[in-house]
């Protein structure tokens, strides 16, 4: 059991570089929001937010090192949310 848990251990160095990347992405997204790119601003902000979220999930939440069960159920959750968002916008757009 110990061995299995040990495999989840992430070094301080890795965690620190993830934090540095997250802070850098925060600076980039604040900077990008000052530039007027029209509708593109929203997509750039959401893309950066999704990248940050993935980093938190993969490393801070250990999802990268988890079993397939957790990975699949998480993906299904996000997929379900995407369907809800998609169908809602389909409705809103064609009203």
């Amino acid at each position: 059991m110990n061995q299995k848990q040990q495999a989840h251990g992430i070094s301080y160095g890795t965690l620190l570089s993830v934090l540095t990347t997250l802070l850098a992405l925060t600076a980039i997204t604040v900077y990008a929001s000052q530039i007027d790119m029209g509708a593109l601003n929203i997509w750039v902000a959401l893309l950066i937010a999704s990248t940050k979220a993935s980093l938190v999930l993969m490393f801070f939440m250990h999802l990268r090192y988890e079993s397939g069960l957790l990975k699949y159920t998480f993906t299904i959750t996000v997929f379900t949310l995407a369907i809800i968002i998609g169908l809602t916008f389909w409705d809103v757009a064609f009203r």
Binding site: G9, Y12, V18, L19, V56, F60
Partner: peptide, 16 residues
């Protein structure tokens, strides 16, 4: 972000 890092590092510390 910093607090999230601290919690993740705390788990590493406990493992060590």
């Amino acid at each position: 972000l910093i607090s999230s890092f601290a919690v993740a590092a705390a788990i590493t510390a406990i493992q060590n």
